[in-house]
């Protein structure tokens, strides 16, 4: 059993093709492994949660469950995404340090396609120069001669880190005197 598992893992890492969802953020293309994605829904009906950092857009009702939506562009320290007709929310199962899974929606500009990218086509992340935090990048995939940034979802959507940011956010502390 253990042996099978290891062979599987190595196989995955070395040669087997993995599926990735690619999407656009502005003019840049990103990819995330398809295994952590639960569904993709149209953007809409979002409730803004006040006093949260800019990257938390708000919450949506996903069939009775309240799911937070994270603005990926703002998470990378860029301005908030502009909402367009093609804006989508990718629902991702994120895990926190205490092992509890929570669904988080990821607001992206456009969802492109599901691609099979062989591991050999993915290069290790550069230590700098990608304009987003190095630990957010899992690798650089080559698709049609262009580089696509494969995101490290666990880092990007780390609930622990994001809630810490929310705590320290100037937005959260800023209280207008009535």
């Amino acid at each position: 059993m253990g042996a099978i598992a290891t062979t599987r893992q190595t196989a995955l890492a070395v040669e087997e093709e993995a599926q990735y969802l690619t999407f656009m953020l502005g003019t840049e293309m990103f990819a995330i492994g398809i295994l952590c994605i639960k569904e993709i829904i149209e953007y809409g009906n979002l409730t803004v949660v006040p006093m949260m950092p800019a990257f938390v857009r708000g919450v949506i009702n996903l069939r009775g469950a309240v799911v937070p939506v994270v603005d990926l562009s703002a998470r990378f320290g860029r301005p908030n995404s502009a909402i367009s007709r093609r804006s989508c929310v990718v629902i991702i199962e994120a895990s926190s340090a205490d092992g509890l899974a929570q669904d988080i929606g990821l607001l992206v500009d456009t969802v492109s396609a599901v691609l099979e990218i062989p591991a050999s086509q993915i290069e290790p992340p550069p230590s700098f120069g990608a304009k987003i935090r190095a630990d957010f990048i899992s690798g650089m995939a080559k698709v049609d001669g262009k580089f696509v940034i494969v995101l490290e979802v666990d880092r990007v959507l780390s609930i622990d880190e994001m809630s810490q940011l929310a705590e320290a956010s100037p937005n959260a502390l800023e209280v207008d005197a009535p």
Partner: peptide
């Protein structure tokens, strides 16, 4: 519940 992400949120 709003979940852990909103743990620091006060007033809600």
């Amino acid at each position: 519940p709003l979940g852990k992400l909103f743990g620091a949120l006060r007033g809600i």
